[in-house]
């Protein structure tokens, strides 16, 4: 049995990806990552001084992420502007999935601010955010051991789906497994599961997810190199 996807994709086909680096001139680093109709624009500022002071860590710099869906970005109702419980949680999880590749030892008491803005959303926003943020952090010249690629695996009606969109995730209630992957370490820095799957299926999902993340990794690297190649000409 093959499942019908609303955008006529195959089960193991990702949405068309687009990535560009250096889209915000006033930021220290910036990038946009688009997967289908989900688009994340990320700006990175810093390292700069951190206030309030009690947040400072004298051993290393800290990373601070801000996830924000724009009011017009959603599918149905207008998204209420400003922070919410959900945005706070996703900010934290983007931060945690990126901090493991970042080296901020040289920046005690300082902070790197990452602003993730979603202009269009069609599920997989946290993953698009992570992909864009890792490019923007590299663009900001920070020390990183690798880039992070992320995407959302799905399981619906006994079938494994790659990079699920909001029709499959929200409307048809697929099991949603967002992952973030660090290729050179072969490690996951984010793993969430929303729904029911057996252990065997989950392991299978992760295996396929890792493979697909490698494809995203290539897109990210190419985008980063492109920004500077144009200038070098």
């Amino acid at each position: 049995m093959t499942i019908k996807r609303i955008d006529k994709r195959k089960a193991d086909e990702m949405r068309p990806m687009k990535a560009e680096v250096g889209v915000i001139p006033s930021a220290d680093g910036s990038a946009v990552f688009q997967a289908g109709n989900t688009r994340a624009i990320v700006s990175v500022f810093g390292p700069h001084d951190l206030h309030p002071k009690f947040l400072q860590n004298p051993e290393r710099g800290i990373l601070r992420c801000h996830y924000n869906m724009m009011p017009f970005s959603g599918h149905g109702d207008r998204v209420r502007p400003g922070g919410s419980r959900r945005s706070k949680e996703i900010s934290m999880l983007i931060e945690k999935s990126l901090i493991s590749v970042l080296d901020l030892e040289n920046f005690p008491n300082a902070v790197v601010d990452v602003f993730v803005e979603l202009t269009e959303t069609d599920a997989g926003t946290r993953c698009a955010g992570i992909c864009a943020a890792s490019m923007a952090l590299a663009d900001a010249g920070l020390k990183m051991k690798d880039l992070v690629s992320a995407m959302s695996m799905g399981y619906l009606d006994g079938e494994i789906l790659v990079d699920i969109n909001s029709d499959e995730d929200c409307d048809r209630g697929a099991t949603d497994v967002p992952i973030a992957f660090i290729p050179s370490e072969d490690k996951l820095s984010l793993l969430q599961l929303d729904g029911d799957v057996s252990k065997e299926i989950l392991l299978k999902l992760l295996e396929i997810g890792k493979q697909k993340c490698l494809e995203i990794d290539q897109v990210q690297r190419k985008a980063l190199k492109n920004k500077f190649k144009e200038r070098l000409k």
């Binding site: 220290d28 680093g29 080296d103 590299a138 900001a140 010249g141 920070l142 020390k143 690798d146």
Partner: peptide, 25 residues
């Protein structure tokens, strides 16, 4: 492996990266 975005500079058998971006340290 590279840990920064930049231009690779091979100096004998030592690999160096010249940064293209980043704030002042």
């Amino acid at each position: 492996l590279a840990e920064k975005l930049g231009i690779l500079n091979v100096d004998g058998n030592v690999m160096k990266i010249v940064s293209l971006s980043g704030v002042y340290l």
